[in-house]
Design a protein around this nucleic acid. Structure first.
Lengths: 142, 142
DNA sequence: GCTTGACTTGGAGCGCACTCGAAGGGGTAG
DNA sequence: CTACCCCTTCGAGTGCGCTCCAAGTCAAGC
């Protein structure tokens, strides 16, 4: 399979596939007689998994760590598992946080709903959230 | 309240607060005699809400739309509500997708667990996911 | 009066993850 | 032989969301 077809089948551009190879996310592809990449269909499974990691918020540098472990054989299974478990925890936390936000959003939307029905005066909708302090800024290195 | 204290209290840097004002996410702050920003504590509620929108994945340009509507009074309540409802749908979808990924991750981790216990041969862990086609690339404008 | 520290502005720089363009080569159809 | 299309590499450009710097102002404390 040439890069164009792979691109069509995985939903990435040929440019992106080459970029992934360049940075090491994809293994160096075999070249045919004319120096063109010739892919095995099995690469699709790996690309799909990468996509999964990406959409769950894993930065490329972490995917790279996983990709490199994967490239060095079964001896690294333990480490790879650890990496995934860590990521799993992060994803679960993200879900919890989003669910929390969803109820805040719902409350706010309900506020607008009431305002429309005149159940409140023309006073602006109250911008209220649980009073938790928000700490976005973590330790500043450097 | 001066910008430094606000920064401490909301967890953003003074740099970021000025940047937000510059692009219109925060209303233009009153200046004191010495041209320094003097904030009212009520701004914290708005900043906290912005933070909520941000962590739920809303891009700045959309927050900007909301901020501008907010700045033009109650007449825009309906539009603001619509914006939030649209966002709510996106957040719910994101949660569903993450939960889906979570189970993929769990399956994969379980695979590594089995491998460690020797329940499978030394064959590599199977990188399998539901066979859904993955379509990351949307219509390419331009 | 002088130092210190927090503030001001405008603009440059950064990290991420692509995204694209230029210039050229390969192989097949007509 | 000539189109034509897909491929190659290298390197520059893009959009986002900050992040930081330089040069200067101002108020308070010693």
């Amino acid at each position: 399979m040439k890069i164009g077809e792979l691109a069509r089948r995985c939903g990435l551009t040929a440019h992106t596939l080459r970029y992934y190879e360049r940075i090491g996310l994809l293994p160096y592809a075999d070249r045919d007689a004319g120096q063109q990449r010739d892919y095995d269909a099995s690469i699709l499974v790996w690309i799909e998994f990468l996509h999964r990691l990406k959409t769950t918020g894993m930065p490329i540098r972490d995917m790279l760590r996983y990709a490199k472990l994967r490239g060095t054989g079964d001896a690294t299974n333990g480490e790879r598992r650890l990496l995934l478990e860590t990521h799993r925890v992060a994803v679960a936390a993200r879900i919890a946080s989003l669910q929390d936000s969803l109820s805040v959003l719902d409350a706010k939307i309900a506020g607008y709903g009431e305002a429309e029905q005149g159940l409140s005066t023309h006073a602006p909708v109250i911008e209220t959230e649980s009073g938790r302090p928000l700490r976005a800024r973590t330790a500043r290195a450097r």
